[in-house]
Design a protein around this nucleic acid. Structure first.
Lengths: 343, 343
DNA sequence: TTGTACGCGTTATCAT
DNA sequence: ATGATAACGCGTACAA
């Protein structure tokens, strides 16, 4: 390892100034082929390795973007992070990633740390800090699928997703439509899954029931809660065709398992639709689900951030924007009267 | 945002030198309470924000660790990444993360980029670059669950995992033990799942069959391949009690679904054991599985890296180490004659 | 096309 | 306990 080779070393070796070496990288067109060749040779022979930290200090552009996710045990976050990381190939931003673990104080600390490293922007998937607080950091920010009143955001068109689900269940002639959800606040995007579902039922004059439970991030708790929901539905709507829309694939999968164990006919007695298109395909009956366009969400997030970062330079203050990405209904075996087979 | 507040600004404001301001952060014990107070006040009043990029350039310690994962669609990688990120709270390393997407050239490029940002070490989960190549970068490196001959690594005790699985199936009086695997090379840790399985069968004089298929990262392909395996097992071992050990939970789940659809009795006719403890719990029958101790794997990786980083300073060259973490068998509904119920 | 001088914000070193 | 000065490695601005 010894000492690092710098522009000065290359400059001495080639009898040019270090500015010329710098230009070799940043403005090669301005060099004669000769000097270019000399420098190229020297770089190889001295085994030069660039130091971007010095570059940041000199020109102020870190090309860092900070990401704060709640965690990676939930497939949705993993997939979004995966797609964000992949944008490196097109946008060249480097990503410093923190897992907030649902802890507000921790997340504040993480943001301070990210700012210290001169990140040019933040992508926030965690939800503990209100957007009003986020905006105060005065740095380009994009949030994804969370409360977003005061900041630019990318969200799925949850309303449309719920609408597609409800319409599909109605078309399949379900007698009663049920939405199973956790207690989401009205100001988060996911609440539109309830609004869209209710509105669609009302417009089609189909009975509709919203069931909200205090789901934890725990399989057994979720199982118990959904089992009680099942009992309730059985007693309440015994001889009706039930169309059930759950707020994510994990819930949908567990609910499906409960139905199967109780020997229910699917999709004859129950139709099921999940959300997120994560594990739904791997269920005992592949589950119809609303798929978010995660790649588009991720790319849009980086694009919006890039725009903010660049408009910051040119003094045009960019307005807050809320980008909405349409989801897609993926029809599988838990809906459609003739589809009780695997794909 | 205006101009950034620096140590110089604080120094002028308080009539001390910027060195004293620096000491306020790095060696506060050496300051008098008075100056400490003055500086503290100035930091608040001028709203100072630290710049760690300048700090890196000055002292050479970035506190960055680079991570290269193949992708995040596979739960195992997500969980490992999650646990690595969480070590920030104890070790204070910041993580620059790249998704290699199984592309060797891309990964080389990513490593160069990471080196340019002065990362102090690398954690490699991707497998495209041989450890012989990795070692040549001459920087602290730890690999996780991949070929590791020339570098320090953290791996699960795959041999033990397979042994636990085989012993459990034998104890449950299976007549024939089957291991379903992809074509893994003999020099990757996962190959020990085959070795451990075979050895245990041999020692117990139980018939054993290793089936390797060319699994892709695709549900439908995997389904077809496992369906053909099922057909094969049915014709070959029709009235024997079959104990099947699959190399991950996804395969185990799909195989289980195939058995259920064919109305096989589980665990009477087939016993199933998966690996990784990811989706096994959410299957129609919760699947017995070998759980890797992911938290320990992640922490060990960071600890080993830290040791390498620190011993690098003190000129003691640290030896290559291969740390082995024991997994644990989690018994659920797909094994054990009396356990055909959910947990 | 190439060079000079200086600055980026911090720490290291040697003084006092 | 505090300060002066020189790094760290690169880019900007202006000059030649």
């Amino acid at each position: 390892m010894n000492k690092k080779v710098t522009f000065s070393d290359i400059a001495k070796y080639t009898n040019v100034s270090k500015m010329t070496v710098s230009r070799y990288f940043n403005d090669p067109g301005s060099l004669t082929p000769e000097t270019k060749g000399k420098i190229e040779k020297a770089l190889k022979e001295l085994n030069y390795k660039s130091n971007k930290v010095a570059k940041i200090l000199a020109n102020g552009r870190s090309e860092f973007i900070g990401i704060i996710i709640p965690e990676l045990f939930f497939d949705y976050y993993s997939q979004v992070l995966n797609e964000i990381l992949t944008t490196y190939n097109d946008f060249n931003y480097k990503f410093l990633v923190f897992a907030g673990n649902h802890d507000q104080e921790l997340e504040k600390k993480y943001i301070e740390e990210l700012l210290a490293y001169q990140v040019e922007g933040l992508i926030i998937l965690s939800y503990t800090l209100p957007s009003e607080v986020l905006k105060e950091y005065n740095i380009p920010i994009v949030t994804i699928e969370r409360e977003d009143q005061y900041v630019t955001s990318i969200n799925t068109n949850n309303y449309l997703g719920a609408q597609l689900a409800a319409e599909h269940l109605i078309q399949d002639q379900c007698d009663i439509l049920i939405n199973i959800n956790s207690f989401v606040r009205e100001n988060v995007p996911a609440y539109d899954r309830i609004r869209g579902f209710e509105d669609t039922c009302r417009q089609n004059q189909i009975p509709c029931k919203i069931i909200q439970k205090n789901f934890k991030n725990d399989y057994d708790v979720t199982y118990e809660l959904l089992d009680s929901v099942y009992q309730h539905l059985e007693s309440e709507y015994s001889n009706k065709r039930k169309g059930v829309f759950l707020s994510n694939d994990n819930y949908a999968n567990i609910f499906l398992n409960i139905l199967i164990k109780n020997k229910k006919q699917i999709p004859e007695e129950y139709e099921i639709i999940g959300f997120d298109n994560t594990i739904s395909k791997e269920s005992i009956i592949p589950i119809t689900t609303v798929a978010q366009n995660i790649q588009k969400i991720a790319r849009s997030a980086v694009e919006e951030l890039k725009e903010q970062i660049e408009s910051k330079d040119s003094e045009k203050k960019s307005e807050i924007r809320h980008v909405i990405i349409d989801p897609q209904l993926i029809i599988r075996g838990t809906t459609g009267k003739n589809s009780y087979t695997a794909e």
